[in-house]
Design a protein around this nucleic acid. Structure first.
Lengths: 151, 151
DNA sequence: CTAGGTGCAAAAGGTTTGCGGTTAA
DNA sequence: TTAACCGCAAACCTTTTGCACCTAG
């Protein structure tokens, strides 16, 4: 039911400590929110969900927690359009599909075979990749077809 | 000197028209700004540069023009962090390297051989890809080494 | 004990909107 | 001629900041 039993909690705490962060209930709560519904919520959305279990949590704290989780490698931040950043606890290598019609975000698997190494000019040190695919999701594609046929 | 002579201007106008946009001097100016210094400026930066040649141009118009250029396929919008969107008139297939230290953005070539097709679940229609590589650029890598050695 | 984290409220970006006047086609 | 576009200014949304209090280690 809940992804953070005592064992997982200790693991989580250790992970924070290794990067110099403290364990706090707020950080745990924010991480739980991300694990419980993996729909790439914005910071605002995380705030509302966390508030249900922890009514006094503040906006600023949610941003702080999200940044901490990103920094210690438990969460990815995804920036897909001019709007708010989104957050994703899936640390496996994967890309994101962004529906330009409805704004929903889907995880997409990348080819298992490692993609041809992108050769960076001398001196550039890559730390991580983000692959975003923009397009139309099945649901919106259907809606569109329907609308077009009834005009 | 200037990428938009009379011929290029006619070409530009035609491109706008095909997507249902009008030619306007402001759109030309904004496009010129992007062509003249390909350093992935933000809308704000485009605004300041355009203002030098067209003092009455407004903030809102710059956003309008940028959106129009993106919509008719002359410019790409790139979103690399929580900050402002950046704009890029290079429509060849390429990725972006974002330096986490200084925030500069570099174009990077992708492998000539088409990368293995990313297989999307049934029904998803991809329209465009964005590949962002986060890391440290050579200049910042050097600075870092220097600072570390003098602490 | 104390550096780091929290909550609050205000400020700071960045982008969008509404409106009266202007202009490309 | 007129729908599209412009400039202006205010509104809006997202994120950051400063500060007094609190707490994990």
């Amino acid at each position: 039911m809940n992804a953070t039993g005592k064992e997982a909690g200790a693991e989580f705490s250790k992970r924070l400590n290794t990067v110099g962060f403290r364990f706090t209930p707020q950080r745990q709560q924010v991480y739980d929110v991300l694990l419980q519904k993996r729909d790439h919520p914005t910071a605002e959305e995380v705030f509302f969900r966390a508030k249900k279990h922890m009514p006094d949590i503040s906006h600023a704290t949610v941003y702080n927690c999200l940044d901490a989780l990103v920094e210690c490698g438990l969460v990815r931040q995804v920036q897909l359009d001019r709007g708010a950043a989104r957050f994703c606890p899936n640390m496996r290598e994967h890309g994101h599909f962004y529906c330009d019609a409805c704004g929903r975000v889907y995880d997409v698997n990348l080819p298992e075979k490692p993609r041809p190494e992108i050769s960076l000019p001398k001196g550039f040190k890559a730390q991580r990749y983000e692959i975003a695919i923009h397009g139309i999701c099945p649901e919106c594609a259907n809606k569109k077809r329907f609308n077009a046929s009834t005009l």
